[in-house]
Design a protein around this nucleic acid. Structure first.
Lengths: 329, 329
DNA sequence: CTGAAAGCGCTTACAG
DNA sequence: CTGAAAGCGCTTACAG
């Protein structure tokens, strides 16, 4: 019974009007004495207002988060961080999973807009014209995660500079024959920016023509391209656009009896937890997924308050030195 | 503009009352002709009703899902599966993360009850009296995942039999001195059932007094207990209640120069993706997390329809043979 | 500082 | 088969 109480019940028990109880929760004027009375009842009954009944409130105190999958380590970190930040600021996080379905993604956005959420954070594989059309039609603040959104606010991994860092590191360690396993160019962030960074970094050390392979994001893909590279040339280092691709490289190198890093160095991007479990531990560049979630949540709340927000915010990366790269000098 | 339409707007454009539009969405009587008119407008404007405005509806068409963390592979699988099943059945999934905080978990449950969701799925580390008290006070159907809930419906990993399988397997492979890294008994499923299964399985092969250590669920915890076990006795096998604990065991064994499985066998529970990346690949028992989510979602919907549901449903497990257990004979 | 009244976007008996 | 009215649990001007 205690669980189905409404604000009206609380008001009655406290001997005040329900508008006063409402004010109590929303920080309006309430005399200390009245506050105390209300608080007592609230606590006695463990009352929590129904956040979804604020149909005509200025603010719903709800932020929608659209994700392409629930089933990835990166997404898990990003939403954990968003949820934490939002909760601390008394907002409810409404997670909508699009399960890799672009139509569902668009519908999820529409739903959130209709539900009158205060803001939307969206992590997507690609921002299409349909997305932009929706975003332009609404007054609700939108923040795009991990993809560039020219017309609005986005939080980005610093793919180019991370790539460059890795390219330079590999060059500095004295490697000469390098293979690169990248992903397709439809993914601008990883397929283009990250690759360009790597190539420019290598160039600084005089490595002009690395072998370049392309793959999807899978473990199997990493294996396939590693095989192709090894058939073409005896490389002394394989750079992988993601750690998962590096896992594939490990598999093939070990199957072919090549030692890491004595025979071939391997380096990845991602900093997955798993990477430190490998033997030898994978050297990798870790992107700050928690930071991305945090910045996204912080930005949307700032926008709500009318504060200025940079249109393009870069998230830090961190070099994780494993034991998979050999000093060749 | 198109995005902020209400049912009243749709009704006006279609030349009907908003109650008719409502009936259209909820499957009430509407003449074919009227239906067609409404449908046309809906499609033209991509209208989606506000699911959270159904304040006095019999059904909200929302199921709450309370999870202890967003940041685990198992949880990711479970909620992916729940979300998929629910979406196919036109329900909205409302995910509430408790971030390993028991008070927040209780408050999340209270919130969901207050928000009048149709049902609640809860995955928790432990079902306390506080939980049961809340569950008993409400009429809302509750399904508990991965923990036994005597007073109601629960979906369970078959912890006892999985444990027994592993205990017998270890015995069958000829091990004599066994260490077991378990978790605390507050977690009845893993801390008690799984452990008891393991011990009974070992017993069948005459292994009566394994060294038993207890840990939290962390990588570090696994390392700590492994060290303790190795200091006490020279074991030939370490059984770990979760794969993560096994990762910790690997770390320590490798640091101490002990070879897996030549010197010490290791076996875990979980079947994480990472486990097959280890060297040697971890032998482990995999629980069907997708199955658990599916069964949970299916059960709650059945309960809503008044259909019978078994109070205790077991999810399958699968033996994943890696290379971390040696035949000692 | 507080209450009565109207309203948010929807659903539901109840007439017709 | 359809509409007018009341209501869900809240919030918000507006008086006082």
């Amino acid at each position: 019974m205690a669980e189905k109480m409404t604000m009206a019940d609380i008001a009655e028990m406290a001997g005040v009007a329900k508008s006063t109880v409402s004010r109590y929760f929303n920080g309006g004027y309430v005399k200390e004495e009245t506050k105390a009375k209300i608080q007592k009842i609230i606590e006695e009954y463990n009352y929590v207002p129904n956040a979804f009944a604020r149909l005509n409130a200025k603010e719903m105190k709800v932020i929608g988060v659209v994700v392409p999958t629930l089933n990835s380590k990166i997404t898990s970190r990003v939403i954990t961080s968003i949820d934490r930040y939002l909760r601390e600021n008394d907002y409810t996080t409404l997670i909508m999973n699009s399960d890799h379905d672009i139509d569902l993604e668009l519908e999820n956005i529409r739903r959130l807009i209709r539900q009158n959420v205060d803001g939307i954070l969206i992590s997507s594989i690609a921002i299409t014209k349909d997305h932009k059309e929706l975003f332009q039609k609404t007054k609700i603040p939108i923040v795009v995660l991990a993809q560039e959104y020219e017309e609005g606010v986005s939080i980005l991994d610093d793919d180019y500079n991370a790539g460059k860092f890795v390219g330079e590191y590999v060059g500095k360690m004295g490697h000469r024959k390098v293979g690169y396993i990248g992903v397709y160019e439809t993914d601008t962030a990883v397929g283009v920016k990250r690759r360009d960074g790597v190539l420019d970094g290598l160039k600084k050390y005089g490595i002009m023509n690395p072998l370049i392979g392309k793959s999807d994001y899978s473990f199997i893909g990493g294996q396939k391209v590693t095989k192709e590279i090894l058939e073409q040339e005896k490389v002394d280092c394989i750079i992988c656009a993601t750690d998962r691709l590096a896992f594939g490289a490990y598999k093939i190198l070990q199957m072919q009896g090549l030692r890491i890093p004595e025979d071939v160095s391997v380096i990845g991007f991602g900093g997955y937890d798993e990477s430190s479990l490998l033997t030898p531990e994978l050297t990798t560049l870790k992107f700050d997924s928690y930071g991305m979630g945090y910045l996204g949540a912080e930005s949307i709340l700032k926008m709500l308050k009318g504060e200025a927000v940079s249109k393009k915010q870069m998230v830090e990366y961190e070099f994780i030195q494993g034991k998979s790269v050999k000093e060749q000098n």
